[in-house]
Structure formats: structure tokens, C-alpha cells
Design a protein around this nucleic acid. Structure first.
Lengths: 144, 144
DNA sequence: GTGAACTAGTTGTATAGTACAACGTGATGT
DNA sequence: ACATCACGTTGTACTATACAACTAGTTCAC
């Protein structure tokens, strides 16, 4: 058991523990917008609108799941659909004004929570932690 | 927008993206043992047996959820219950031989996946990444 | 230009994971 | 001995998810 093995083991355990709690934590903090809805809405906002299929591909969801999530967001009045005039199969999705507002609130509150958790970190460590996470996620995406 | 803010923003995004995919990835890699079952079984193995209530507390689950998860693991033959002779309300849970075996397989395969993802990291970076994750999770637990 | 193949999205159905409330049963402490 | 507490199960409901079957538009080959 090398030091390297120890580190990998710790990384695995901590990533697992984090994943294990993330949804429940998000649901507790933001009952009005689940982690899933939040990420979908954030993606729409970020991309200035996109298709259901794009959301499904980006989040590894079945298109039926994406369809139902979008329907739920529409029912809540957070998303609106605009039929693409060039291809009538396609619906381009956009946050509504209200959706953008709720998203902004949740984003602000999430940001605050992260700032609190990381308040006593040195800037140098934050910087490195951020780049490690980017690197890790990129590798996971690359390797499946 | 300081450099510090940027780092926190990246950390938030990457942690969220990771959490967002973790279950699906785990399910794809290990259809025989979901992420939830895996963590519960691992805890039993680690603790040399514990109660349903302990699992619930440790994973922030309702006791009914713990009860059903355990029932599922028992149905699969991965967990057995031993009534505490000193308190007949209590069931001490243990992995069965088969449960321990399946757990060992999944653990080995998860470990392999993590090693692959982290293969080209310098030991120094692994070490720091591990300690950042520990620190982050501890803060999250402390602050809710 | 018409039919086959493809693409976008919805709906039916089934499953896992979860919470909350109500309950049964065993233990404890006045 | 009775009230209260602790442990676990069951009823119910909801969310997130996948897969399969479907409808309706689009494109391409001939």
C-alpha cells in the first residue's frame, strides 16, 4: 500500500460521501428547485436557450426524463418553449422571467453556502482545489 | 469579482456536476449494487456490524428508508440480522459471506476506476486533492 | 416527388430512492 | 404500573429515472 494508493482511497471515499449527500442537502436548502431542476435551468440560462435533446445529452439523461423535467419546469412557469421556425420538431427552451429570478436566488444562496464552507481557506488552496476538480471531472468524462 | 470568487464558483460548478452524475455512473458500472446499497454495506463491513438506526443517522436517511434498504439487501442475501440479546428491539446487521464478497468486488472495481482516472497525477497533487476533499466535507458537515 | 430512414419529443409503464405519518413492540424510569 | 421513549416496519405519496412504443416532422436516395 503506497502513499499514492492511500491518497486515491481517500479521494474515492470523500467523493462518494459527497455524492451520497448532495441531493438531500440541495433539497433541504432549496425545496423550491431540486438539484436536477436547478442544473437544467442553469444550463438553459447559460446557453441562452437550448433543446431538450441537448439537455439530455449534456446530463446523460434519457430524452423521456428530460421531457418530463422540462414539463415540470414549464408547469411551474420557469421555462417556456419556442418552436424553431426552421424545424417544427424542435422546441428551443428558455427560462421565463420568473424562472430566471428563481434561478438567480438559488444561485446566490448556493454561492453563499459555498463561500461559508470555504471561508477560512487560503486563496492559493482554493485555486488548486478548483483546478483539481476540473481535472478530475474532465478525466471522468474522458474515461466514462 | 475577485480571483477568490472565481475559484469558489468553479468549485461549486464542478462539485455540482460531479454529484449530478455520480449515481448514474455508479449504476452503469455496478448494476448489481447501487451507490446507496454499496455505501450502506460498506459501512456495515467497516463497523463490524451496526444498527439500522446508526445507518440512518450516518447517511441522513429516514429510518423507514434505512429499513427498506436493509430489507432489499437482506432479500439479495447480502445482509443478515442478529437480534441483540440485551435489547430485543435492536437488530445488529452484518454482511453475509456473499455480501462481503460482492462488496469486495465492487470496491476493487471502483478503486480501479479511480486509479485510472488519476493515473497521470503527480503524487503531490493526489495528496493535496485528498486533503482538500477531506477538509471540504468536514466543513460541509460542520455547517450543515 | 415519394417512400425509407432518421430526429425530436411525448407517453405508458416500471423501478429505485426517498420522506412523513401511523403503528407495534420492547425497554425504562418514575 | 403506567407513561414515555427507542427501534423498527408498513402505508402512502412523490421524484427521478430508464426503456419501449409511439407521433410527427425532416432529409435523402432514387
Amino acid at each position: 500500500m503506497t502513499h499514492r494508493d492511500d491518497s486515491v482511497e481517500t479521494i474515492q471515499q470523500e467523493m462518494t460521501a459527497f455524492a451520497r449527500r448532495a441531493r438531500a442537502t440541495a433539497a433541504r436548502m432549496h425545496p423550491e428547485l431540486s438539484l436536477v431542476s436547478y442544473t437544467l435551468l442553469a444550463h438553459l440560462d447559460d446557453q441562452q436557450g437550448c433543446r431538450a435533446t441537448d439537455l439530455a445529452a449534456h446530463y446523460y439523461l434519457d430524452k423521456s426524463t428530460a421531457s418530463r423535467q422540462i414539463a415540470a419546469l414549464e408547469r411551474l412557469g420557469f421555462v417556456e418553449r419556442r418552436i424553431d421556425p426552421d424545424d417544427h420538431r424542435v422546441q428551443v427552451l428558455h427560462p421565463t422571467t420568473e424562472g430566471a429570478q428563481v434561478l438567480a436566488n438559488v444561485t446566490a444562496s448556493r454561492r453563499k453556502a459555498f463561500h461559508e464552507r470555504l471561508a477560512d481557506w487560503r486563496e492559493e488552496d482554493l485555486d488548486r482545489f478548483a483546478s483539481y476538480l476540473v481535472r478530475y471531472n474532465a478525466a471522468q468524462e474522458r474515461l466514462g
